[in-house]
Each structure stands twice: as C-alpha cells, then as structure tokens.
Write a protein that binds this DNA or RNA. Sequence first.
DNA 1: GTGAAAGCGCTAACAG
DNA 2: CTGTTAGCGCTTTCAC
Lengths: 349, 349
Amino acid sequence: MPRRAEPPARRATVRDVAARAGVSPGTVSKALNGTGQISRATRDRILAAAQEIDFRPNALARSVFERRSYTVGLITTDSFERFSVPVMLGAEDALGAGKISVFMCDSRDDPIREKHYVDVLLGRRVDGFIVTGRIFNEREPLDVSPGVPVVYALTPSSDPGDCSIVVDDAAAGRVAGEHLIRLGRRRIGHITGSAWFDPARRRAAGLAEALGAAGLEVAGDPLYGDWTEAWGRQATHILLRSCPEVDAIYCGSDILARGVGDSLRELGRRVPEDVALIGTDNWEFIAGGARPPLTSVDLGLSTVGRLAARRLLEAIGGNSRAGKEYVPCHLVVRGSTDDLPPASTGSAS
Amino acid sequence: MPRRAEPPARRATVRDVAARAGVSPGTVSKALNGTGQISRATRDRILAAAQEIDFRPNALARSVFERRSYTVGLITTDSFERFSVPVMLGAEDALGAGKISVFMCDSRDDPIREKHYVDVLLGRRVDGFIVTGRIFNEREPLDVSPGVPVVYALTPSSDPGDCSIVVDDAAAGRVAGEHLIRLGRRRIGHITGSAWFDPARRRAAGLAEALGAAGLEVAGDPLYGDWTEAWGRQATHILLRSCPEVDAIYCGSDILARGVGDSLRELGRRVPEDVALIGTDNWEFIAGGARPPLTSVDLGLSTVGRLAARRLLEAIGGNSRAGKEYVPCHLVVRGSTDDLPPASTGSAS
DNA sequence: GTGAAAGCGCTAACAG
DNA sequence: CTGTTAGCGCTTTCAC
C-alpha cells in the first residue's frame, strides 16, 4: 500500500549542534564559518558535534540572508546537441570550481519555454545566466531586467551591449587554408553546409582570405548545400567535374568530410596523396574513425563554455564586458593531410 | 576601472507589495498563493501591485520554510556523452513539467568529485538525485543517507534495494535477430564491442536466444573487440573468412555497423541484398548518413530518463520502488535491411 | 570569547 | 475577511 507523502525528515540545524556542544547558535555559526573570535577549545567541540550529527548547513537559508544563491541558469536552445554539450561541460567545470551550482534548462528553441525557465530561475534567485545553443546566427537577448548578468555562448546576442563568447569561424577557414598551402596544395576546393548559416559563410571567407594571401582562389567556388554526408558525396562529384585537378578540399563539417572522402575513394582519388582533406568540428567519433583519420579544425567549444563561465563570474562580481569575444580554434592533424608534397604536378616553375 | 562587487540589487518583497497595496504581508501571501479567504477587490489590488513592481516570490525563503526545495541533482559519470544526454533530456523534460529544477553535475567518473557534488547539493536541500552514466556494468550506490531518494538511470546500482531504470539489452539482441529471421536470413553473424561490457554480452545472448528459437546459431560466434569502426572493418574480414556464406550481421553499435558496411562493400557484398545489416543505438547522424541508411535498434534512452524522473517523483512523494526496471527497445527500419528475401541460395529444401 | 536579539523573505496560525 | 505574531535556519551586530 502506497505510503502517504510525509514531511521530509527534519535535518540537523545550527541549534542542534549548539545544544550538543553546549553553546549558542551564534557561536556555532562563527565556528563553522571561521568568522569572529573563538577559542580553539570550543571551536573543536563544535566541529566535533557537527560531525557527529552529520550537520550540513542549509544553503537555502544562508542564501535568503545573503541575497545571493551561488547558482546560475544554463539555458540551451538546442537540447544539448553536440555543439552545446562541450560548451555546457566547460561552463559547468569552471563554475563548479567556484562553488556555484548549475541549473540545466532545455528551451528547445521555444520562446514560451525559455520565458518560463527564466521566470522560475529568477524566483530561485540565480546569480546569472549562460545562454547557449547550436552555432548559429545571432539571437534575441534574453528577456530579463537589466541588472541580471547574462553571457551568451556560441549564439551571440543581437544586442552589441551584451557579452557574447563565440567561435572564430573565419579563423577556422584561414587555419585550414594555410595548412593546405603549407603542404603545397594549390587547387583547393570548399564544400560546406547552408549558405544561410553565418558560420558557413564566414568559414568560406576565411579560407578565401588565406588562399588570396597566396595568390590563389577557391577552386570551383564554395559549394553550399546541407550538413549531410549525402551532400558531401554529391558535392564531390560536382567539384571534380568542374575542377578535376583539385588537390585539396576543406569541408565545413566532419560529417561532410566523411561523405567527401568516400566519394573521392570511389572516384579513384587517394586521400591524402591525390587530395588532402580537412573537416571541421573535430568530432572524435567521426574524424577519428574515418579512413584515413580526418584532419579537422577544432573550434574550441569547451573553451567557449569555460570563458563564458569566467565572464559570467566577473559580471556577477560587478565587472561586466560588452561585445563579442572570439575563441581561437586550432587544427588537429590526422592522416587525411600529410607532410608530403602532392603527387608531383611538375609545375615547380 | 573595474567596479567593486556591490551587494546584488534588492528585489521586491512581500512587504513591498503589501505597502503598495495598503495591506499586510500575510494578506499578500494569501492572495498570491490562493490560500485562505480573501475579498476579490483586495486580491486584485494586490496582484496589480505585485505586477507593477515586478514582484517575484523568493523561492529560497519559501523552501526554507517548506523544508523542500523542488530541485533535484542530476549526476552523470560520463560527461554527458551520447548515452547520457538523451537520458538527461528525458529526465529534465519530465521534471520541469512538475515545477522542479535540475542541477547538472558532471562527476567524470571520479568518486571525489561525485562526493563533492553530493555534499553541495545536499546542502542545497535537493529533493533527490538521478544518477546516470554511460551504459555500463553496475555501479556502487550513491553515498547518501538512507532517507534521500535516488534513482539510477542506465547504470544500475549494485544494491538490489535501489531503484534502477535500465535498457533491455537482451531484448535488443532478440528484436534484431527476430527481424532478420523474418526476412529469411539464416546465416546471421554478430560483431560487437568489449566482452567486459555487460550490455555487449547481453545483446549477444538475446540474439542467440532469437536464433535458437528458430533452430539457428550465431554464424561464426559473436566477435568481441572494441567499439570502433576499425574493429568493425577488421571483424568483417574475420567473419567472412570463417563463414563466407553469412547473409546478415547484427552489430553492437551503429559505429561498428558503419565499419562493417564499408568492408562488406569492399569485399563485393551488397547491403542489403547479399548481407542485411542492423546496428544498435539509432544514432541519427551515424545511422541516417550511412549508405544505405542503417536499420538500428533504438534503446529508448529518453524513455529511460523520463521514467527515472517519474520514479524519483514517486519516491519523493513517499512511494519508492526497489529493483531494476527495463525499458523496451524498438527497431527502426531503414535501407540496410529490406523486405525482399535474400539472393536465392537455392537451399529451399 | 560568548550569548542574546534582530532580521533575511516568506508562510501558517490565530486573533480581531 | 484582514492584521498580528511567530518561526523556518542561518548570520550578524552588539552587549556582557
């Protein structure tokens, strides 16, 4: 027979400890927090008493008094997909170290749900918010009163007065391009996802910039499509038809690169000997499992999370910054690019 | 110049609302919570006043009084990898509906960190815990006093008196086997990950059971290895050498199945015509992107999370259950298995 | 050094 | 119906 909900067991309080140690509650508080002056003897007695009855100070009560909860809300719009997970882990890691606990909220990109979460958490007196989501275009600012600290991670706020930590997509394209040029590649193509996606365009621009600096252009123009393996395969055929002498391809994602790699092999091109291949995301399961393993641009997502956490702590402390801050990316070299020059094309003029 | 940390802005209190509405704090409380008797006029006046000064009841203060915080701790041991993310989303979804907020904790499989999180959250007076992690063998129970509700999701507790919600791995193997038999396949192989992994052995046993019911055995015995594409490729060669007439393969993960599919194609076997292929996890990016798209067993991870949340709420309400509860799995059919009989082997004796 | 008292913001019990 | 009082658990003056 189901038992009825009983009031939760009463837990040990300061008063209990005080009684056990034969002192007053105020003294217990001092002993536990190291504030004020206390004789070593009573302090030890109090600590022992606390230990014995497994006393655990009620953080809620303390927060009522302090007007601060040492908690923050972490709101994601994309159900903690693969982009926001590293961010959130980075953030949680950085905040946990600072004795701050994190409330997890999945708004599923629904403004109603988001508003609801914000209301509830404001009621819980969170010290601030981190807002994240898939890498995407700007988003509307969170609907909170001006005093509440908010940091945007990955998805920048459309208000330039807000603090946003973002990925440096242009650098991703540059890094990939520079690496390929250093390897001696000259005919470098680019296959990526949707042109409506700001990051896709920025990566393409970064690549074009790196190639431009070496007097090159993107071979066959960037090919925009969607973020699927199927498009990667299809785009490879398109690219090789329009530009058969291509000797390297930079892809806007690892998934795309997988499709590209498969098609290259089927078309009789060897990776990396004939065509070097670089992906984006550095998603271990995808990049590491490829054949050959895929060189990829790591966007530094967990750094984004960690930095967002740091900025939030600063803002809570009264030092807020405005504007976008770009996290550097870096190349993780695997087998799909190598240090050998490409199969000699003879044009070493 | 950095401003000094100021005390957080004082927010509107019940007293403020009371003053504005010209009533006493107690009356405001009644109006806001719908308790007691109140005249419609004053109630409206109070609500209006609350609205005007953007009053938001302090949940912390309320919790001190109620001895209950309407929060729970969600502890994961595996950094919210792809197994625990769906679980956590399911749990968060189910709990959020019940006005409960969720603290996110990544213990990284470190007992020290875990203990730390538990201590902090106990201090915050969480109503209970959900413990999750990668699908794995049993784990030690969480170190909390007996009164605290805990539900284990995915990773069962080694104490049979605890409440654990787990995946039905044996059923996964059975479902895959039965589907293949229904398609007329008779030489069914199994490629999977580590034999130290309970789920791997249970899936193999489930497959064997389904085959046994049809008078069959696993072709070439289950091949244990690791959870990588590389092993999938390698194991395919081993399997085809020892058992060339194999006409279906069930894989312990989608990643493995990707490797298997690639090797099959290279060895000249068509999927699904010559060899039908089933994976496990139903991970959209992997299964959906394969060529042909991969039929896969969905383990029902988000259901695990949702159910764990429900059981936790029950336990908090005073009705706890003991023992393991299995969540059903289901097959998601894609192109790597089809409804056609296998290429006629002539042995329709 | 230590204790008594007041208060954080909210709610329940009891008067009026 | 509404106001007053007391108290949740903790902390911080301020006397002693």
